[in-house]
Design a binder for these strands. Structure first.
Lengths: 197, 197, 197, 197
DNA sequence: GATGAATGAGTGTTCATTCAT
DNA sequence: CATGAATGAACACTCATTCAT
């Protein structure tokens, strides 16, 4: 007879985490297109049927996994956020924190990249993601108000101040770019040059 | 009685082009992952087996379609290339030409985006593509030599001077960005600010 | 309400056996070349997909079926093996046991014949089969040592002492040969005349 | 302008022979099951459609090829047939002639072996083949009448006097048997021991 | 809660054959 | 006569999902 103490993790938690890791691992190893429910189940050492205990369907599994990572990423990027610093310094810190996170979890990052270009991508509410990065957005808006940042379409700003982080981390796009502090500093300077007034 | 005029195109050409268009259309409508040979065939109003008359296999169909578009795109971007212009003006012209091409063929552009993030992407020789854009690369190199452009890792430069064109054209990333001349001018200025010394 | 008695066989066993019988039956009816997975499935009254629950692939199904029969056959041929008998009597007994088995399971025999001439034949380790018939081989070797059997290439001996059993049982080759005791006795005498010193 | 002289072989003959050789070659290389009409056509350097000019269908092509070889084989086995020789010598000569033919045309022999175990085998009239070997059959009958050969079921005799030639030539069955004169002599002696009174 | 077994619908691909030219 | 193009039907196999236990 098994007794579950209050602090003991339930079986559920363990299975769910195994499923999370298995999903990320498999997608990174064999790609989104060929990652099937049964392969993920095998990787997690459970029956394919068990997945349907925890998730409504395949879509739910993949989307939830994505959202979980994005949440973590947002948290990492905005932790120790110091609103009193100059805007440039705040954004610079975010850049380093993001590259730090990606460097530590390249598999999570890669999963997100794959997800973003999969058909499942359209199933997530963009706002749901953005809210994890809200503090950053507000910094940029403040920069515009203080006439430090160019007052242009927000999408354009995003393309120059946030998108490069993703592009530079994508080994397919940047085969020569090494994630060392010097390179990150250089790239950030360029991003800042692009958006600053 | 059917009369074939001299200028009449042969059946082959018509089918092959129908296949090209059907491939692009379907991939754009339902995505790469779910675009099957039989669905493409149905879209082109031919039998799935007929595809194998024109292409070795699915991979061949998708890759060839991609290469064809990239070739067109490179030609468009570099036509009327005037090496005597100032470097900034050359790049600015390329930007406008690229947005012009994408504006005229949003479906071709979208297909390439999807392809670039598919498992088939690894099957094309990156150099094969780059050669269609070689003149641009040389302009950037000249800019570095003339101390007009920052002397940094080429991948980083690419992320700021070429990658934004793609990002801004990607309706998923930029839902607010409108491809009008003003917006393009603004964005180009930012890209130039990022890379210029 | 269904009640499962203790002796009731599980679904698995029933399906797997149905599959075995269906495979043998279909191959005998329409030949190896035209026996497809879906036809076998239909014969066994299951979905083609279900076959892949029990076997890795078509090859696995066909090879396993073959090995199973050969194992049975070897066991039949060598049961009640009495090493103390004169060599001629031992071989004679094997002949009768083999014809007995083939007479009782003509379909199994025919399946093996078809398999042996199929492309799948090369996938089985010849030794794996031979080991079921090892006692026979040793009898022949003993016969040579005792100068009762001609001391010639073993392949040649096999062609005259074992191969005729197969040839005579093959209805395609022998349409007039009836498997009665008289005919078997006659044929065995000829085989013995061929190999004895 | 091409002028065909009377002695010149017509295109037909050349194509038909190319087709014959291509069929044999391909079947030997990739097996009966995977030899398709289009592959044979490619091997013969003609269009698949052209095959249907010369043969009614695939079956016709394969069967005709088989019959042609069997005819040749029968001719070879029975040429220089000397009815005045002792029966043993006649049969011995046939053995050597057969092994000679097979040694010179291993591909033709192998094609026949493959054909004999294909579904097409049932389409040929056994008598059609046998008539090419009629002289041999009559020799055996004479042997029985002269009380030189055992008076048993003809199928049984065939299994011991003709079948071994095929078995010994089949590299799958006899991997150790070498087609040299010594081995053939030994094997023939055994065959003769089996059938002689 | 957990699962082995089962499956209809789909995958990419090859086939023997026909037909307009 | 010769053929390139075309295809319906079949192939082996995988899929996401369900369901009885």
């Amino acid at each position: 007879m098994i007794i579950y103490f209050r602090t003991m993790r339930t079986k559920d938690d363990i299975k769910q985490e195994a499923l999370f890791e298995a999903t990320v691992k498999l997608v990174n190893e064999i790609g989104f297109a060929t990652s099937s429910v049964s392969k993920i189940a095998k990787e997690a050492n459970i029956s394919p049927a068990t997945i349907y205990v925890y998730y409504k369907n395949k879509e739910d599994l993949l989307v939830t996994t994505y959202l979980e990572i994005k949440k973590q990423m947002g948290k990492s990027a905005t932790e120790d956020f110091d609103d009193s610093l100059p805007i440039r310094d705040i954004l610079r810190q975010v850049w380093f924190k993001m590259f730090d996170y990606i460097g530590k979890h390249p598999d999570y990052f890669q999963y997100c990249e794959q997800f973003s270009n999969s058909p499942y991508q359209s199933l997530v509410d963009k706002r749901e993601i953005e809210k994890h990065f809200d503090p950053l957005i507000h910094v940029v808006i403040r920069g515009i108000e203080q006439k430090i940042i160019k007052n242009v379409n927000f999408d354009i700003l995003t393309v120059f101040i946030f998108h490069p982080i993703v592009a530079l981390s994508n080994s397919r796009i940047c085969q020569d770019f090494e994630l060392n502090d010097g390179n990150i500093e250089t790239a950030f300077t360029m991003a800042w040059d692009a958006i600053r007034l």
